[in-house]
Amino acid sequence: MDLRIFTEPQQGATYDTLLTVAKATEDLGFDAFFRSDHYLKMGEVDGLPGPTDAWITLAGLARETRRIRLGTLMTAATFRLPGVLAIQVAQVDQMSGGRVELGLGAGWFEEEHTAYGIPFPKEKFGRLEEQLEIVTGLWGTPPGETYDFHGTHYDLTGSPALPKPAQEKIPVLIGGHGAQRTPRLAARYADEFNMPFSSVEDSERQFGRVREAARAAGRDADELVLSNALVVCVGRDDQEVARRAAAIGREVDELRTNGLAGSPAEVVDKIGRYAEVGSRRFYLQVLDLADLDHLELIASQVQSQL
């Protein structure tokens, strides 16, 4: 079971804060540092000093870390044209020495599009599917050849399909709760399927759909890494759990139900229940980025037991 640290910088974080957390992620032995791709805060926070761009952040971290994987949960297909996205991600992969992963989703938060003048199309899923085909097609085009694509939403002619990533294949993550189209997309394009903020039972049901879709597409279902993302709130005792829950504006009982909360033993046990239904990787959503002791506790008393 891989443990990855997952941050939500739109809630309020500078690049320097993210760098500190990423370096702690690396030093403490976690597998990866991931971040959301949002431009507007959510909920009752001030969001200061304002948003940071996901791929600019990861470019910086690519040069200031050495081991951890770096990626997004999830880049919104509405934010970037697919050809530009392919260039950006390939470049950051080169800058990192081949440690980048791309989580790509349809985009859903209309208010942030309105706030920053980003078009928010009614039909987003078709755009996502075309973006997946274009980005992976550009990366997979042999050097010296060109790439063409003529779809409903995007049109590319004679693209040199450059630059190439450092990795032979950048892992692509797809996630979500959709019962039909999402599993089909994952079966076609994904190296990993992520189930965000869901129960063991809902994860098991969706994992089954994804594996079935992979088999229907003629693919070995075991090729797909299955993963989960949940908010994390661990404490050495009940008082520490309560303090950490209060710091992120959540209730302990709600977090125990909907997240990974409680003592290290409780969290290890709950991760084990997800592992029983097929999950091989966890994205721990860390919402208090100033609490590095939290990461140390997870590394020493949760990660060490998995």
Score class of each variant (00 low, 15 high):
2 D>C: 15
207 F>W: 03
143 P>R: 14
156 L>W: 06
35 R>G: 12
137 G>D: 10
95 M>A: 13
251 E>G: 03
6 F>Q: 10
198 S>H: 10
223 E>F: 07
267 V>S: 12
272 G>N: 11
217 A>G: 02
141 T>P: 03
134 I>L: 05
135 V>G: 11
23 K>G: 04
146 T>Y: 08
221 A>S: 13
263 S>Q: 10
140 G>V: 14
130 E>F: 00
138 L>Y: 01
18 L>V: 05
240 E>A: 07
1 M>F: 00
38 H>Q: 14
177 H>K: 15
234 V>G: 07
36 S>Q: 08
282 F>A: 12
218 G>V: 05
9 P>L: 02
153 H>E: 06
173 L>F: 11
38 H>R: 11
13 A>R: 01
48 L>A: 15
253 D>R: 15
188 R>G: 05
182 T>E: 09
185 L>Q: 11
295 L>V: 06
19 L>W: 05
140 G>P: 01
27 D>R: 06
237 D>I: 11
150 H>S: 15
198 S>N: 11
24 A>W: 03
286 V>M: 10
116 Y>N: 03
165 P>Y: 01
237 D>G: 10
299 A>F: 05
160 P>V: 12
247 A>H: 06
155 D>K: 10
78 T>L: 01
249 G>D: 03
306 L>V: 02
18 L>C: 13
250 R>T: 09
149 F>S: 11
136 T>H: 06
22 A>C: 05
139 W>P: 04
41 K>L: 07
49 P>S: 08
206 Q>W: 01
139 W>M: 09
227 S>A: 12
108 W>F: 07
51 P>F: 08
205 R>W: 02
239 Q>W: 01
267 V>K: 08
15 Y>T: 10
119 P>S: 12
202 D>A: 15
156 L>K: 11
33 F>I: 07
303 Q>T: 14
249 G>Q: 04
64 E>Y: 12
18 L>Y: 04
238 D>V: 01
141 T>V: 14
83 G>V: 11
99 R>C: 02
101 E>M: 13
206 Q>C: 08
209 R>T: 13
222 D>C: 13
226 L>P: 05
220 D>F: 13
305 Q>S: 15
6 F>G: 06
203 S>T: 06
272 G>H: 08
303 Q>R: 15
141 T>W: 02
72 T>W: 02
142 P>L: 13
19 L>H: 10
147 Y>G: 01
174 I>K: 13
90 A>G: 05
145 E>P: 09
5 I>Y: 00
302 V>K: 07
55 W>C: 03
88 Q>I: 04
28 L>T: 03
173 L>I: 15
144 G>V: 10
95 M>L: 13
181 R>F: 00
245 A>Q: 06
175 G>Q: 06
6 F>C: 02
164 K>Y: 06
287 L>D: 00
16 D>M: 07
49 P>F: 01
208 G>K: 05
287 L>H: 00
48 L>E: 03
27 D>F: 14
252 V>I: 04
